[in-house]
Amino acid sequence: MAAAARFWRKIPQRYNLIGTKCSACNKVYFPPRYICPVCRRAGKIEEFKLDGKGELVTYAVIYIAPRGFESQAPYIIGIVELDGGARVTTQIVDCDPKDVEIGMPVKAVFRKVNEDGESGVIYYGYKFTPMR
């Protein structure tokens, strides 16, 4: 149950890519930061919704999956540079590992991320898919 509460606190980030932005230096933070490490006291942090479009910076194909992800192997984990400026580590779905390419345009989709066993809470959130 502790996991459910921990996940629930992050719903704005997981569902809608809500980060923060320092209006003093225009730097975007995802996951959100509440103090700008560049501007420090002079910074002004505001909520900022990323639009979910971006480019694949790098990736790895996972063949030996951790528990709970065995049935999805092989799958792709990538780092995506979002158009708003932040980078996210994310699963790249609906993409054959042989078709994945660094630099490919991708967009956020809403997917099941994990579940707490057969009777536990299902955790949803963003993953990314090639832009078609």
């Binding site: 999805q72 989709v109 997917r111």
Partner: peptide, 16 residues
């Protein structure tokens, strides 16, 4: 459906 898709994920995509 893909292995990470269900009625909720399909509903969210359609609603968006």
């Amino acid at each position: 459906p893909g292995p990470d898709e269900d009625t909720i994920t399909i509903s969210v995509e359609a609603a968006r």
